[in-house]
């Protein structure tokens, strides 16, 4: 596609992340890396609806919540193995997204962002108040990790879990790439350019938008499931509005539409606030200012800046 070096960078990053446990000893960084990889999965999904179709959806964390509670509750109530519930979580989430997206996506235009925001709040309210099912605000503890001391892999070890999330994030990135390259991806980008035109030539645009929305939700569901089994603790707070905004940030900061964008953006939204801890009380202010400046001065995200630089250096050489 348009930017070859992105694949090279991605491959290098994957190798680096796999070797990460060998390079750094501090479990702190390993922990952040796992979180960032989980966010990569969610952000790749968000990129389908936001980056390609051009629709802002503010419910990605809510869908992560459905995936996380889905895998946890399936495991608790039906005694299913962890692998199976993790595999089911994206499908459960997709069902919810189908039910939510069918009515709201037939409505065209900018209301969509606000409607999805309402969905996130609804998910939050239900997770908080349906205490007999979700344990409410107190949350669920002791969610099992896949594998065990007797299994092939022991995922209680952080380095092993890092590999698992890396593989999953890689696979989902690949899947996102396939979708983006397909006819569906082309149609989605056409919708972003001019939705009326797409409708005029007889393509039912809402079906494609619905596909992007449901696929995005499935990505989020998987991310939520991995999160639940990694942290072993979930409560509604983790899946609130602020986290959905992080997913949007990850896509735009990394670079909308580009395959490497969500990956870079996910690391950005996990690591930058952590890095800013030294700023203490001014953390929020600095983070906010950084976002505004980044959006003004690099509207196409980090990938956009990188590809501009690359193009310029190529031109220089020729």
């Amino acid at each position: 596609m348009q930017f070859r070096p992105a694949y090279l960078a991605l491959a290098a990053a994957a190798v680096g992340l796999a070797l990460l446990p060998q390079i750094i000893v501090a479990k702190y960084y390993l922990h952040l890396s796992i979180l960032a990889l989980i966010w990569t999965i969610a952000a790749q999904g968000q990129n389908l609806i936001q980056g390609h179709a051009g629709y802002v959806s503010i419910v990605q964390a809510g869908f992560m919540g459905i995936g996380a509670y889905g895998t946890t509750l399936l495991g608790m109530h039906f005694a299913l193995p962890v692998w199976l519930t993790m595999l089911l979580a994206p499908f459960v989430t997709a069902l919810f997204a189908l039910a939510a997206g069918y009515p709201s996506l037939r409505v065209k235009g900018r209301c969509f962002a606000i409607v999805t925001l309402a969905y996130n709040l609804v998910i939050f309210i239900v997770l908080t108040n349906w205490t007999s099912l979700t344990h409410g605000e107190a949350g669920i503890t002791g969610i099992p990790k896949p594998g065990g001391p007797d299994g092939w892999f022991d995922f209680r070890d952080r380095a092993t879990f890092n590999c698992l999330t890396l593989i999953l994030a890689g696979a989902m990135t690949g899947l996102a790439w396939l979708i983006a390259r397909s006819r569906i991806g082309q149609t989605l980008r056409a919708i972003r350019q001019n939705e009326d035109l797409v409708g005029a030539i007889g393509i039912p645009a809402w079906k494609y938008k619905l596909f992007a929305f449901v696929a995005a939700a499935a990505f989020a569901g998987l991310a939520g499931a991995v999160y639940a089994h990694y942290q072993s603790f979930i409560n509604p707070e983790v899946f609130g509005l602020a986290q959905s905004l992080d997913a949007i940030l990850a896509v735009i900061v990394g670079g909308s539409g580009a395959i490497a964008g969500p990956f870079i953006g996910a690391f950005f939204v996990v690591f930058l606030p952590e890095y800013l801890r030294f700023a203490d009380a001014f953390r929020l202010i600095i983070y906010g200012l950084a976002l505004i400046l980044a959006t003004i001065f690099m509207p196409r995200g980090i990938v956009g800046v990188a590809s501009d630089l690359w193009a310029r250096s190529r031109r220089g050489r020729e």
Binding site: Q50, I248, I252, V253, L284, G288, L289, L291, I292, P299
Partner: peptide
């Protein structure tokens, strides 16, 4: 979307 991100940054600030 860019205006929306600016709005988010403003909110935090």
């Amino acid at each position: 979307i860019n205006a929306f991100i600016v709005a988010l940054g403003l909110t935090m600030m």
